[in-house]
Design a protein around this nucleic acid. Structure first.
Lengths: 239, 239
DNA sequence: AAGACTGCTTGACACAGATCAAGGACCAGG
DNA sequence: CCTGGTCCTTGATCTGTGTCAAGCAGTCTT
């Protein structure tokens, strides 16, 4: 059985309704109290410090993770060190599924991270005869796939300015789903991470931020940006 | 309920064992004879001519498709006409699932195509309480997602020459899974399609083919290439 | 057989974004 | 307060790939 990777979908619409040690773990769905308890017993909480690895590409994939707190970056490396970030994981996201028995990408913490960890075998055995959970997994996978395809369009066919604008718009929306709408978009990841996500260099990202600021579209603040002109902004990022 | 998109995974390992009007339809799995018949009754075969659209992005997604014969290109467009091909679908592939109730990309035939078409509602109702099929769907989605992530790495971080080489290697492997290993790799799609898949222009693709031929790595033949030096080739394409 | 059309290749040139290099802002530790 | 570190910005220059333009090879039509 394969593992799945859901790097960036916020599972917010699926918050676990029952009281739950693994609250943001959206995958648990509408389990009955007894099942729920069984499910919980399979989980263990783990904390990671800044830059610590949750797992690495090509490692044997023995666990799946639900992110509880903090942000993780998910990436693939080429042998010469070039890096492509394939997504940022937020609380509620589900990580670590992969086809075959090895992880297909690496994940590490940006800042402090708490996860809810399941061993793969018991987890798969638990869900395999529960259609509700399987449907939920399908739903997540479909969403992830669609996001990945959007990102392909961005990487293959958009200019640097469009990439940065689209990134900020999408990131703002994702945060809004978690925290509600805010004027300031916080960017916990560094410029290098943004560059590696957008297929650019750090210098180009930096210059593009500056350019957007000169054009009065954003204001750069510590650890984030304030969006001044959402309309003009969304137009730049438009699909 | 969402739709799923499995643009490029060959489902070859999952061929339907029972005799089946929709033979390459891998998703049917180990259904009992009665179930199998019910499943078949839901399907209808449809043929499309060259360049004909199976469905388009943003259309209401009323059907899902299993490709029986031929090749389709799956793509997204920007408002100004820039195109990103997100995958090529081969016989056995499953298409048309998307999050929400609209297709998230367009699909059209390259050459003649036959599909097995299911209306979305009945299809989802059929699978929703069959864990075997759901697991299979999950498996497909996971595989697709992993391929999409590989493609992000390619689009974001590889040079034109690496892109073309990696494409040829991957395409050869995909065809090998269907037709067995062949010396000549057939390329039913045009140069423009390859360019739009790799995030390049048609001129760059053409020049790169010529360069690989000058370097004695391939020979360009009508509708394909012959790979001369698989080892050096795989090295170029290496992850 | 000539013309028209489509798909592919090639050349000359331009430019977006990469590379190289330097310096500023901020913070933690001594 | 200085020191070293990390992260970010900016400038100067280079280059890989895009753009523009022309021409060739097939194939279809009449």
């Amino acid at each position: 059985m394969p593992h799945l990777a859901f790097p960036s979908t916020s599972l917010d619409g699926f918050k676990c309704e029952t009281h739950c040690a693994v609250r943001p773990l959206a995958i648990c769905g509408e389990l009955g109290p007894a099942e729920h308890e069984e499910f919980e017993r399979m989980a263990q909480h783990v904390r990671y410090g800044p830059k610590e690895a949750l797992f690495s590409e090509d490692e044997v994939a023995d666990s799946v993770y639900s992110l509880i707190e903090g942000i993780a970056r998910l990436y693939k490396l080429l042998p010469d060190g070039r890096r492509q970030i394939i997504g940022f994981a937020l609380p509620g996201d589900f990580l670590g599924m992969a086809p075959g028995n090895r992880y297909s990408f690496s994940a590490d913490a940006i800042g402090a991270v708490t996860v809810c960890k399941f061993f793969r075998g018991p987890f798969l055995r638990f869900i395999e005869n529960r259609p509700q959970m399987l449907l939920r997994m399908n739903d997540f996978a479909t969403r992830e796939l669609s996001l990945a395809q959007d990102q392909m369009l961005l990487l293959g066919r958009r200019s640097a300015e469009e990439k940065v604008a689209a990134f900020l718009v999408a990131w703002r929306e994702r945060l809004a789903r978690l925290d509600g709408v805010t004027k300031t978009v916080s960017l916990p990841m560094g410029r290098q991470d943004i560059a590696d996500f957008l297929g650019l260099t750090i210098e180009t990202v930096s210059r593009t931020f500056t350019k957007l600021e000169r054009e009065k579209l954003i204001v750069i603040v510590p650890d984030g940006v304030r969006v001044l002109d959402p309309k003009r902004f969304d137009a730049l990022a438009a699909a």
